Amino acid sequence: MIALIQRVREAHVTIDSVRVGRIGPGLVALVAAVPDDTEQTAQRLAERVLAYRIFADEQGRMNHGAIAVGAGVLAVPQFTLAADTRRGNRPGFSRACPPDRAAPLFDTFVAELQQRHAPIETGRFGADMQVGLVNDGPVTFWLESY
């Protein structure tokens, strides 16, 4: 699985003009599944997202993960992260996991987050979502889990 994580001061996701998720300081995790992913891959990615040290310690160095600082996490499914952009001017999506497999993997990812930490908010798989955020830093990392 792939996650693009961003440290944020605040973030929210809206679907059909209804705010369905909102966090204060924390992480936005845009998440995509690829064909070889399994439940274990989803669980491992959730562990990495929560433990990834991108929050400042007392000296201002990135030494703390989301759990250590009590940061919120907004998880948003985003299959376009798995796009093949190597050629041409149009992305290809053959490297993305089909929706019928990707949705349960995203659910497993979220369940693992919720089992380990709170607050966890989410977008909705397959929905047309508007995501608003204030990137802090900016600090953005690409994580993969195999």
Rank of each mutant, 00 (worst) to 15 (best):
D128Y: 14
D37E: 07
G60C: 07
I120T: 00
Q78M: 13
A51E: 00
A118N: 07
A102H: 09
R86Y: 03
F106M: 06
A71P: 07
F109S: 06
P104N: 09
S94R: 13
Q114H: 08
T85M: 11
F93Q: 00
V134N: 06
R95S: 12
M62D: 05
F93R: 01
G72A: 07
D100Y: 11
P119A: 12
T122K: 10
A66K: 02
P98D: 13
M129T: 12
E39D: 06
V131S: 04
E121D: 09
P91Y: 10
M129I: 04
T108L: 08
P91E: 12
F106Q: 12
V76D: 11
R124W: 10
A56V: 01
F109Q: 08
F106N: 09
G65Q: 10
A103N: 13
Q59T: 14
R124Q: 14
A42I: 07
A96S: 15
P91W: 12
A83V: 09
R53P: 06
R48M: 05
R90F: 01
R95D: 13
P119Y: 04
A42D: 12
A118L: 08
T85C: 13
A103I: 06
Q40V: 13
V76R: 01
R87E: 03
R87A: 05
R86Q: 10
V69M: 11
R44A: 05
E39Y: 03
T85R: 15
G132V: 03
G92R: 14
A75S: 03
L74C: 13
G60S: 13
L45C: 02
F109D: 11
V73M: 12
F125V: 01
A46Y: 01
R44K: 11
Q130Y: 09
R124Y: 08
F79W: 12
T38N: 02
F125Q: 01
Q59M: 13
M129E: 09
L50A: 08
Q59I: 11
P98T: 06
D100E: 15
V134E: 06
Q40E: 15
M62I: 00
R90Q: 09
V73A: 13
V73I: 15
V110Q: 02
P77H: 07
Q130N: 08
T85Y: 09
N89V: 11
Q59D: 15
G65A: 12
M129K: 08
F93H: 01
R95V: 05
R101N: 03
F93C: 04
A75P: 02
G132Q: 00
V134H: 06
H117D: 00
D128T: 14
T80Y: 00
T108Q: 11
A83G: 11
D84L: 07
E112F: 03
T108E: 15
A111V: 02
A118E: 07
G70T: 02
Q59Y: 14
Q114M: 12
G72K: 13
D84W: 07
D57N: 05
